[in-house]
Design a protein around this nucleic acid. Sequence first.
DNA 1: CCCTGCCTTGCACACGTGCGCAGCGGCGAC
DNA 2: GTCGCCGCTGCGCACGTGTGCAAGGCAGGG
Lengths: 336, 336
Amino acid sequence: MSDRPKTFVTAQMVAERAGVSRSAVSRTFTNGASVSEATRRKVLEAAGALGYHVNHLARGLRENSNIVCLVVANLTTPIRARLVDVLTRRLQAVGKIIMIINTETDEQSAALALRQTLNYRADATVVLSGTPPASLIETCLANGQQVILINRDERLVGSSNLGVDNAMAGAEAFFLLQRAGCQRLAVVASDARTASLVERQRAFVAAATAAGVPVTTTEVGPSSYSEGQIAARRLFGRSQAPDGVFCVTDLFALGFMDTARQEFALRIPQDLCVIGFDDIEQAGWASYDLTTFSQPLDRIADEVVELLQEPDQADSARRVIEPMPVWRRSVRPGAH
Amino acid sequence: MSDRPKTFVTAQMVAERAGVSRSAVSRTFTNGASVSEATRRKVLEAAGALGYHVNHLARGLRENSNIVCLVVANLTTPIRARLVDVLTRRLQAVGKIIMIINTETDEQSAALALRQTLNYRADATVVLSGTPPASLIETCLANGQQVILINRDERLVGSSNLGVDNAMAGAEAFFLLQRAGCQRLAVVASDARTASLVERQRAFVAAATAAGVPVTTTEVGPSSYSEGQIAARRLFGRSQAPDGVFCVTDLFALGFMDTARQEFALRIPQDLCVIGFDDIEQAGWASYDLTTFSQPLDRIADEVVELLQEPDQADSARRVIEPMPVWRRSVRPGAH
DNA sequence: CCCTGCCTTGCACACGTGCGCAGCGGCGAC
DNA sequence: GTCGCCGCTGCGCACGTGTGCAAGGCAGGG
């Protein structure tokens, strides 16, 4: 309703209205600056009347932009949505502003995203999906920007790496199935070759092989419910159907369970034990009750915040966090 | 590995290395500016060698920041995650940069979030959750910032409002259940009083009342699977258990279905018909096969982009988009 | 050869802010 | 009365960019 020009209010305008200099306005809004109580009151009153808000873009020209960029793909996936949720909360709590870039998993999209974060002078970039080319990461670091990779491939130097201990979980999954008395094991993996998924698959197979137990491996598309269904049809369509399956992702596991039950009349856990990974909310729903491993998202967020506060430790070694097994009813209790 | 100072590369540095003026560098990176082919090549080569990236923060001082702010709560909810996913994709496609603010649904958090968007000179703010105070929206508009509310209360003037036709869906849900031959109807709603949820509930009850059919109403907490379970225990714990239920949210419906089946041995749809709203991915899973209404997220994103491109139409009336009924097997096919 | 018009280029200003520096006024101590 | 100190204030520069303006170079036509 106001007929004021449609433009942002400036510190200059506030200064004129309050009858002080622009510096006084600036100082009123900067912590620890020296302003008398009288002028501060005048400034605050004028600012309130005009609707003044400090321009953080201009402020960012001189000092840190306080912007942290999140590069993520597959945002609708429950585990990604939770990770983004936790990270945004924690980063906001320490005064950061979050820029989100929704990208694909291929290298080119990741490169494009990283360029954007440079354009906006983000203090740091947190990569949740996709693996950007090393040369670009080099550029980010040279410009003083921090790069934090989560659950990515650990080959890249200079950037901070942190992720969960996928190998431990893969091996543990094998032991759980073995202890449950499963005879014919299988693993449902993805052909997307994501580092963490590959690692879980590899460790599971390695542990089984070390114990002399054969494993059938099925690779389907990217992590999703429907690809889990496809895996079930493939595994149960042949002779020698498995009775213990490790799905490298909860989404795989849920689709797998539904199809095993409804299309092949299998009872879980009597005829078939299933283990997943991620502990997404749906894994705890009554229809599934899936035994899985929970990603310690809070711990990951802790680490990210810590790395941001102490950029010196950025080049330190990869930090690994242990996932926690979550016992539910998709696996028979082990014989004691 | 490089020993360059940890600071961002400036157009000035590029100019010196290329042996041209800083203006030439600027013009090389601005569309439609007049630069000779020779200097452009020199500039691009120097920029590549130094790793130069235009500072969009500084650019934003003169013109539009190209930043769009997304204010959202309950990010982990499947429907919200999908909305954020679609919106970020579409906005990125038209060159916008997305800032995300993860907030609570209360008014105070929304106000804080809106202040942030003003601080960063966002061109527009899209509010997916929470209802900010009208006075702050006024401030945004006075500063030339666009405010778009999605599925919020329609009372606020000046801002653009768009959402789905909840009333239509609520009434339609009643007719579907009536046609399926349900005798005792119930509605599962939330006590959170979110505008769109209230509207669905109200329209369902209104349609039933108009047809002379009584409806039992149960209000539980915020939309979630476990609150849907609570609703089921409450409704089936009394005499006169319903045989047709409209859950104002898919999450409610899924928890409701699981508990109805497992704790009360009800068969769906033989003993009980259930209708949800949102068409989240899980509604299509084999364990549920839930009849529901799909939120036309693509259409919503279309509208948002259109509003951003044509800010003049911003104060026009609220735009309403019709949700589409999605037939699955949680409702008996109607008698013809 | 001169004039005109076009393409290119550098200068300088503007955008909005934080802060160093100097100045100013008040106040207590000698 | 004078000196020194301290709290506050305004000036002006810096941050990095886009662009209007004028000037210069060059080609083409008369």
